[in-house]
Write a protein that binds this DNA or RNA. Structure first.
Length: 545
RNA sequence: GUGCCCGUAGCUCAGCUGGAUAGAGCAAUAGCCUUCUAAGCUAUAGGUCGAUGGUUCGAAUCCAUCCGGGCAUACCA
């Protein structure tokens, strides 16, 4: 509809010999200004040295609108062109919603491939609550991309060769040794969580004291990695997240990609040795050059990260998405810089940075820290508030603002909790449909062809239809910006409008079967949109609450 | 110090490709259940959009400076 109006306005501009200019067509906040509004006249006013209202009038006089689509157009305020879309347009859209399998599913990106890499926590321990934000964001974004036509590869990258993993090995070994000798020293920067002891106990159960005084750190590392990964994957499964590919750092050594990249930097004279380490020139874009290979001969995380991104580029995805917390802000810039220096195009890579999360129980807020023993794990959070509330709370705010996660509010099984507002609307509709199915024999024989659209005229009904027809556009916007919280705002308005509709219009009425059927159809359409929306943002559609 | 993010109602936050009277949820106050789920609806109250300048027909939105908070600034990842 927006496009239609835009085209017609452009035609009118041509007729008037006005210059063509980019302008905005948008829904005005106030309904009295119509369904859509264009600001073209104000934008032209300076160039034409004329009063915007007069320009608007000229445009309006030269507009030829199809009355089936636009019932009225007028001028208001400083020179807005306001359009009133005809009710029939929305009613036809209702038929379309009811008739199509997945209204709002776009084919904009049909045939394209996307890779989304997220979570990517190293297997040094279970996911903590703070990880939840990117876990949930990534899940929603991956769904969203699929909904717009992308073939999506979900990927998890982890470092299994670095210092952190050595640290894990040492920590587990120390806990294991302590079982037999309580005085065995624990490494200074070791991981102090209880889960390390659990892993140590498991080793002791299986191998008894055979590994005491063992220098086989590799064994402890592999054992720990496997244990931690099982836990991480179990947590992800609770969200229904399944990664297609787990990509580990080690494979980049095995296939020679890291050596190859090292050579590219050397040949291009972008790296140099100093104090035994290899440094990458950051050519003034960063404060100083960065180490890519330590004096010990071990690469820092940067080099494998760069090699990994180059690998993703070589796999020819049309879109490559990374999700990181803001604490990785600098590293991703370094990595992209390195990839570019090596001669690869990073245009396809989009990085989503989310800000940190603070958790609040009542007035007490607490932060995540792996160093402390007292960690709030993602599993704990899920146990506390449930999977849907977790998913919802993590994505209901824009990723680039700090998130205050109110655990008490999320736990609340009541009207206070914003998740239930949405889900309740859905459950209510299911209730009505059940009622129709069970108690009103007469509706069963109605078919879509029997729907009398003339019976829909009430403002609450029309309001809903207008909202529903906006769904595809909302999907497109949300997908373009990769900001799932926008979709939540929209679904909120849909739910609200439904509740108001419900309150004012009795749906099932034996005296008025045709009207009841019409309203039932509206309910079904709302149900479809809500269900699609919930599926994308990643929460359930409960039939009863 | 430098880079990035944030500062909007008592609290948590939407709104930001400039547009008409700044929105929602929670909290507060007052109403609505013999009728499809009251996890709902209705109404009232609540604001110098951090501050100051600028850009223009028009700024919460763009620019500059300043103030406040977060994150980063490792031969950890």
């Amino acid at each position: 509809m927006k496009e239609y109006i835009r085209l017609e306005i452009l035609k009118a501009l041509k007729k008037l010999d006005y210059p063509e200019k980019e302008f905005i067509i948008d829904e005005p906040k106030d309904k009295k200004f119509g369904d859509l509004s264009a600001n073209i006249a104000m934008l032209l006013s300076k160039e034409l040295k004329n009063n915007p209202r007069e320009i608007a009038k000229n445009i309006l006089d030269n507009l030829e609108m199809d009355s089936h689509k636009i019932s009225k157009a007028d001028i208001a305020g400083p020179g807005f062109l306001n359009f009133f879309v005809s009710d029939n347009y929305f009613k036809n859209e209702l038929l379309y919603i009811l008739g199509s399998e997945d209204y709002g599913k776009l084919n904009t990106n049909y045939g394209k491939t996307a890779n989304i890499e997220w979570v990517s926590a190293n297997p040094t321990g279970p996911l903590h609550a703070g990880h939840g934000r990117q876990v949930c964001l990534g899940k929603a974004i991956a769904n969203l991309l699929e909904w717009t036509g992308y073939k999506v590869t979900r990927e998890y990258y982890y470092n299994d060769a670095g210092n952190q993993m050595n640290n894990l090995a040492k920590s587990i070994r120390a806990r294991y040794e302590q079982i037999f000798n309580p005085d065995f020293p624990f490494p200074q920067d070791g991981y102090v969580g209880e889960y390390i002891k659990e892993i140590a106990n498991k080793i002791a159960d299986e191998f008894k004291d055979k590994l005491v005084n063992s220098s086989d750190l590799e064994f402890f590392k592999n054992f720990g990695e496997k244990e931690n990964f099982n836990k991480i994957i179990k947590t992800l499964e609770k969200f229904g997240i399944v990664h297609d590919i787990f990509y580990n750092e080690t494979s980049l050594y095995k296939n020679g990609n890291i050596d190859e990249l090292k050579n590219i930097f050397k040949e291009k004279n972008l790296s140099y040795e100093n104090e035994g380490a290899v440094w990458l020139k950051m050519s003034g874009k960063f404060e100083k050059d960065k180490v890519i290979v330590k004096a010990t001969g071990e690469p820092t995380y940067r080099l494998p990260d760069m090699a990994y991104h180059i690998d993703k580029i070589k796999r020819k995805f049309d879109l490559i998405i990374d999700i990181f917390g803001s604490d990785h802000f600098d590293t991703y810039k370094e990595v992209l810089f390195g990839v570019q220096s090596a001669g690869f195009d990073t245009d396809k890579i989009k990085v989503i940075i989310h800000q940190m999360v603070t958790f609040k129980k009542g007035n007490e807020s607490f932060k995540m820290s792996k160093r402390s023993d007292n960690v709030y794990y993602l599993d704990d959070l899920i146990d506390d508030v449930g999977i849907d509330a977790t998913q919802f709370f993590f994505i209901m705010r824009s990723a680039n603002t700090h998130l205050d996660f109110d655990v008490e509010l999320a736990k609340e099984q009541s009207d206070k909790n914003p998740v239930y507002y949405l889900q309740y609307a859905y459950a209510r509709i299911c209730g009505i449909l059940r009622n129709a199915e069970e108690n009103f024999e007469s509706f069963k024989k109605f078919k879509l062809e029997d729907l009398n659209l003339d019976l829909i005229k009430d403002e609450y009904e029309m309001n809903l239809l207008k909202l529903l027809s906006r769904f595809p556009e909302e999907i497109e916007d949300t997908a373009k910006t990769l900001e799932p919280h926008r979709l939540i705002s929209y679904l909120n308005i849909v739910a609200e409008s439904f509740h108001i509709f419900y309150h004012n219009n009795r749906v099932l009425d034996l005296e008025n079967p045709s009207l009841s059927f019409a309203r039932l159809c509206i309910c079904k359409a709302v149900q479809k949109i809500l269900n699609s929306g919930f599926t994308i943002i990643g929460i359930k559609s409960p039939e009863r609450m």
